[in-house]
Simulated scan of single mutants.
Amino acid sequence: MSTTELPPGANLAVLRKARGWSQAFLARKASVSVSLLSKIEVGDRTLTPAVAAALARPLGLTMAQILGRADMTQDAEAHLSALRSAVRDYDLPGRPAVREEQVAAALETAGRLRDDVQMSRLVRMLPKLLRDATVHAHAANTPAAWATLSDVYSTVYWLAARHRWMDMAELAVTRQRWAIEQQTNPLGAALAARDRAGTYLNDGDFESGLIIVDRAIAAAQTALSGQERAFAVGVLNLRGMTLAGRLTDKAEGRREAERHIASASVAAEWFDRDWNRHHMIFGPQNTATHVLATRLDLGEPHEALSAAEGIDAVLRGLPPTRIAPTRINMARAQLDVGDRDAALENLTMAWEAAPQMARIHPMGREVFRVVSSLHRRSNPELLRLSKLSGIAL
């Protein structure tokens, strides 16, 4: 896979200049300081999701557009076209019957590829898996069959959201919700709501995303019980704390974040170790990684690093989908407190854990840009990371 040439901060500068706007004009419209905007564009500060959302609004863009769309190889683009066609044919199964165990085995494989961040392989297998799951759901018409189809759409959403293909992401969550509503499934409905809130997260509409989350939590608390309820409520609260951390009003963000952190912590008490259900993860470990990220988004890097104490133990056993973003967040926090060497070390760990994710992750690319700018390209470890990542200095 290839990615967009520009990391978020540099992409922002191109978009601003294309409008013919000065830094002062955009900063004033976005209620951001000119000094911060200037540092972001030259690579002395990272462009955070919250600031990206604030700058996107006056430009008439989404946060995802500011962060930049990740591209794919020509071969992968052909598979992506086939996937779009399969999503479009959601109510046109029109193929021979497919055995349940065949679909289940393929979904399990897709889940492993997702957890291991093998995106190139995942995009190749998703079109057939989606069509097979569609055929099976229409033929069997059971809660399990529709839940399987919903899980496939969730994986389509995950892949699209990672690349910032927001048109596909939004269509996938619409199909996901449609599939799970064919038969009563409260847990599936909660997970579909979590993904739907993710589209608001990527669009930069954090307030609306929080409404989706809170409504889904209330429904899950009523319809579910025991560990299933704790899992559903916990997963939704993880999404809620991420949304809250990115609110423009940081006082409100802290209040909302603390509410979701407290609720997630109570739900996590139901688990000795993290559950991976429907390829979503919840438990004490994943809660800790989200608390770290939320503290960082709230502008509290020291608190984020305090929350990251014992991070090696926290990450042990989690899939690369969680390890890489957490290492990137560690690097962001260390940059904010002036520890460039530690930031570079954690960024390298992110690339080693999940190279395909780190290469397209907007904050992975942004932190690399800032680290390389601050080191002035003279650090041997930076040169090694440049070779490892394929991103030129």
Rank of each mutant, 00 (worst) to 15 (best):
E381V: 08
A54I: 02
P301Y: 00
A353T: 09
D214L: 10
S386Y: 04
G9P: 06
I217H: 02
L335K: 03
S31T: 15
P380G: 12
E381W: 05
A52Y: 01
A76F: 10
A18G: 08
V42N: 07
N329E: 12
S378F: 02
E258W: 07
A267I: 11
A354G: 06
L318I: 01
W146G: 08
Q23A: 13
A313R: 00
V135H: 13
G60Y: 03
I66G: 01
A27V: 09
A197T: 04
T109M: 03
P319G: 00
A144W: 07
L92F: 13
R384Q: 12
S35N: 13
K128T: 12
A244Y: 01
D312W: 02
G338L: 04
K128M: 11
A70R: 05
G240N: 03
P49T: 03
A267Y: 08
A52K: 00
A257T: 08
A30S: 15
A218V: 12
Y157S: 09
N379D: 13
R16Y: 04
S265F: 00
T326S: 14
A392G: 14
W21L: 12
G111I: 05
A133T: 04
A264G: 02
I328S: 03
E108L: 12
R57A: 08
N11C: 11
S208A: 14
V233D: 05
S22M: 13
A190C: 05
L159V: 10
Q74E: 14
R69T: 07
L388Q: 11
R45T: 07
A343K: 02
A145F: 08
G204K: 11
G68P: 03
D341S: 14
L388W: 07
E303H: 00
A193P: 15
A104E: 10
D249S: 00
S31E: 15
M63E: 07
S150W: 04
L59W: 01
V266S: 05
R277E: 04
R95K: 13
M72V: 15
L292F: 01
A350S: 04
S35T: 15
I311D: 04
E309V: 05
R277A: 05
R57T: 05
A97L: 09
L36F: 14
G9M: 10
V371P: 00
T289A: 09
